[in-house]
Design a protein around this nucleic acid. Sequence first.
DNA 1: ATCACACATGGGAGCGCTCCCACCCTACCC
DNA 2: GGGTAGGGTGGGAGCGCTCCCATGTGTGAT
Lengths: 351, 351
Amino acid sequence: MGSGQPRGRGGARPTLEQVAARAGVGRGTVSRVINGSPRVSEHTRAAVEEAVAELGYVPNTAARALAANRTDSIAVVVPEPESRFFAEPYFSDIIHGVGAALAETDMQLLLTFAGGDRERRSLAQYLSAHRVDGVLLVSVHADDPLPDLLRQLGIPAVISGRRSADEPLASVDSDNFAGARAAVGHLLDRGRRTIATITGRLDVYGAQRRLDGYRDALTEAGHPVEESLIARGDFTEDGGRRAMTELLARRPDLDAVFAGSDVMAAGARQVLREVGRRIPDDVALVGFDDSAIARHMDPPLTSVRQPITEMGRTMTDVLLAEIADTRPAGTRHLARQQIVLPTELVCRASS
Amino acid sequence: MGSGQPRGRGGARPTLEQVAARAGVGRGTVSRVINGSPRVSEHTRAAVEEAVAELGYVPNTAARALAANRTDSIAVVVPEPESRFFAEPYFSDIIHGVGAALAETDMQLLLTFAGGDRERRSLAQYLSAHRVDGVLLVSVHADDPLPDLLRQLGIPAVISGRRSADEPLASVDSDNFAGARAAVGHLLDRGRRTIATITGRLDVYGAQRRLDGYRDALTEAGHPVEESLIARGDFTEDGGRRAMTELLARRPDLDAVFAGSDVMAAGARQVLREVGRRIPDDVALVGFDDSAIARHMDPPLTSVRQPITEMGRTMTDVLLAEIADTRPAGTRHLARQQIVLPTELVCRASS
DNA sequence: ATCACACATGGGAGCGCTCCCACCCTACCC
DNA sequence: GGGTAGGGTGGGAGCGCTCCCATGTGTGAT
């Protein structure tokens, strides 16, 4: 009666040993079955699996981690002090993608916050204590020491948005260059001729690439690149406002603006409205990210969509491959991957 | 030379034993120092701390978890299939708050995805294997079995947004009732008299409370509550559109709409614009959540702000208190907490 | 000086698992 | 028929830590 129940109350969990006793085999054999080793006879395997089911056995991960020196978990390092990171949908979407990729495995996801120096130090220690099998780095600045630390420690890591053209870590990025080119090309197609741009912080490689794309599109179309049409923002709404004000002062004749992010585009729009420029009639506006605010802006904002969720998923896949590659004996065969995912221009009423 | 370096290359990490040897004390003493036990002499403590610093010792968490039967980590259970959850800023903000609260401790944060039945089952197993010290549940439906499972297992848990008036789990919620009352009161103050509402899914307790608040505000002001002014949405933009269409058909005389979420308000706004009703001139519109889209909507949307980040932080504090309370010997003294945080009406141009 | 007791300390005994070696048995070969 | 693989299996030896008991060592009371 009920002895076959998967456990009773919050009592003691069954151990490998108990499963072994119940199945009438040794510990080693149960371990083999649990871990899917082929060196077990069909008959024995069935007996063990039955015992596992009857007892509702779940391996104790701490014990496994201790004995096998791996944790079956990966960490996402979140650069906390940048509230920007939380404000944007970026975070949610990345995590969504990571979760989707992880769902197919039995790896667990750890969220770590690399805030100030204090957290960063304890994070380094934490990672060096090998509490995770791999690390996902998002939104890393060019001068962040963490990536190199990870490389030194030999911990598999994947970075989102590489920090330079020759990123030493495996990376997954969206095609910022092509996205910017498409945006500017679109404005040219619409007959705009005096196209300004508001850049993000240029120490962020992606922002630099967007600027490169802007330049390239103009050059290819036979237009000169005028420095007076380039203003620096910092990815914030307020930075967008300032840059737009600056641009209008310098070049009142501009008829289009390509902003390096939707948030900066929102700031620019405010300024344009304040000075009475109509969108898109007087000035066409294009953003980058295709975030929720793009859809709800007035007018709805044309924007370059980045496949953020897809990036999260791809990063995870790459990381898992790296981890699997390291396992055998620390011998790495895999080439360091540099993946670039395509962007897509979403046209709306602002252009 | 350099023997005082905090570790060299990715070699073997120092163990407790090695620290003990270096400090010239026993393992037990080092353990006491590491865990802040008072039963260590000042002199010995200093020696151990020096050895720890010299070797760059970091405790192996797997070993600790195995020996002490606790993990120093908590899990946030994310109801994945609801893409709504990821779409809204809710997720980011909650996590932000949780992270902030956790930063002051050395607990770690695990993200688990409770998707379909398969994941839910493995999640239950996972939790029952005691791989976390506590669980944070967000956005749980009334008929979700997980909360009760956790209670049975005796795992400390806190839920965001209780599921009913007598939530058996500790919970942290925002004051949906008062928020809705404030929103409707505000519309009445502005002279609106035919105020409709678009509700969320009423099997979500918070949505029900917002409706209650709507009713209460009208009643208190001496207005009848007319069922023809109440339409059911489902928290989606499309649901907002449908509900608004329905309301206009039933009550073309309405002069204000209180939507149970910003996203539904966005849907409603689209319909209102399509039929030529001006906001706020013809129809005043108020949302709930004060999400990013509220600020960027046209016109900017008046909305009820929930202190989401604060909720995440509070949930974590409550959970940590519960965990600390359980530790001594499974004897629980703490009263089950039911915290309700205040909401705030943010007035913008839509009303 | 003697006893008692508190406090500081060392180290054995696991926690539950994986790894690996030794063992056994059953073909299969010469 | 004896020898030899080799697959299948059992179980010892840890992984690094905490817990706890036994053992000092010093203090104050008698």
